[in-house]
Amino acid sequence: MLHVSAQGDSPVSLAYFLEKGLNINSKDYRESTPLHWAAFSNAECILNYIIAWGGDLNAQDSKGLTPLHLAVKSYKDNHSTRGIKQLLLKGADRNALDYETKKPIDYVPLPQPGERPDEMALELRNKILINEWSIMGDCLMIKNSFKKQKKSPFTLICYLVLMGVSFFLLEVSSYQVLRVSDQSEWLLYGSQSLFGLALFLWLMVWLSDPGSIKRDPDLNFIKLLDTLEASSLCPDCEVIRTPRCRHCNLCGKCVDRFDHHCPWVNNCIGKGNYAQFYIFVVVQSIYLISVVIVSGLYFKLEFVDDVYAPFEDREMHPWHKYRRGAGILMSFVSALFMVSVMFLCWVQTGNLCRGETTCERYSKTNYRMLHARHQ
């Protein structure tokens, strides 16, 4: 009966039979589990429930096929790759071999000569089922990386290192020359103040609660399925979803008004910390603009006015001999990051004006329809 419930995309009946003591990984005469049936039928809703309740992602049937194999084999009939993406994001093994030593990707048909390319097949072969490490996907999370990921402090440490190195280079080059010239002290102290404020705001966003929805310990989640739609519940967190929440696989929690998971603060951005995050992005942008202005003024004073010439014999800083190289490097790096952060600031400002989150604005899911349905 669990298998029929899985094929019919019915979490309510699945929960009923589980309460009666049936095993979520029970097998039929083909040694298929309920997850096999759900994956083959592209039953997206119950797929999440089975995985959350202990379904074996890499169980093999009598032919050695895993749920991912079956999801790939049936993608044409289902006209969707969403089930495949769900399995991969939850940790399904894309390199699992069946008894014919075939991987899931081997069941994606190759285009024949003169035949019109299948867009979904190309997406599966070139994007979804490949197992390549990339900085853009695995570290910066700018593009989707369809694999189970865990929170990593890598980019968190990178941000601190970059900020520390940038301040050191500024101290060696631009700040040193500005002090000697006795010009634009307000710009010098303003830039240093923005540096400290940016770090403080970064710390606030990192340690803040993004608006995660808390589980009510007195609430019987199984009984909620009798009164609410299964799609309005999160089986992983066992909470009732709000209209604008989303489950973050990295943090393992549902976040209200989910915007995105920011690798630079190693935290989700949502209702609880969006204001701090937006101010942080604005301050970081202004700081980088000030660094570019300071660098421009430095080049004028150093290379045009040569204000440092009378002080060449004075040991103003142990690294003062390297100030020109440090100044050139800092100018290039700060300009590069200024463009990136200002683009992020522009996107977030656009989100505020539109009353949308980044997730809602750029996701293929029609969130406007979802909002209307919950109202």
Rank of each mutant, 00 (worst) to 15 (best):
Ala372Asp: 15
Glu229Ser: 03
Ala335Asn: 01
Val165Lys: 10
Leu297Pro: 05
Ser193Gln: 12
Asp138Met: 06
Cys45Phe: 00
Pro111Thr: 03
Thr227Gly: 09
Cys158Trp: 02
Glu356Val: 01
Leu224His: 08
Ser331Thr: 11
Ala230Val: 14
Lys103Trp: 07
Phe168Asp: 11
Met136Gln: 11
Asn78Gln: 12
Phe277Met: 11
Asn23Leu: 06
Asp77Cys: 10
Ala326Leu: 13
His3Gln: 03
Gly91Leu: 14
Pro67Met: 03
Gly252Gln: 00
His247Pro: 04
Cys248Asp: 12
Val255Pro: 15
Val291Phe: 13
Asp182Ser: 10
Gln60Ser: 05
Arg82Ser: 04
Asp56Asn: 09
Leu88Thr: 11
Gln183Pro: 10
Tyr159Met: 05
Glu123Asp: 12
Thr242Leu: 09
Ile213Leu: 09
Leu57Tyr: 06
Leu89Phe: 13
Leu329Lys: 06
Phe221Cys: 04
Trp133Pro: 01
Ile157Asp: 03
Gly83Asp: 02
Ile105Asp: 02
Ile279Glu: 01
Val292Gly: 00
Val333Ser: 11
Pro318Lys: 02
Arg215Asp: 02
Val283Thr: 08
Tyr308Glu: 03
Ser331Ala: 10
Leu14Ser: 08
Arg244Asp: 15
Trp202Val: 04
Tyr189Gly: 12
Gln60Ile: 14
Ser340Ile: 11
Met163Gly: 13
Leu187Cys: 12
Asp98Tyr: 02
Ile50Gly: 01
Ser5Pro: 14
Phe17Gln: 08
Pro113Val: 12
Pro310Ala: 07
Ala309Phe: 08
Lys364Trp: 00
Leu2Pro: 05
His260Gly: 05
Gln192Pro: 04
Trp202Asp: 04
Asp226Glu: 05
Asn351Thr: 00
Ile135Tyr: 14
Gln192Ile: 01
Gly252Pro: 00
Cys262Met: 10
Ser166Leu: 15
Leu170Asn: 12
Gly190Leu: 07
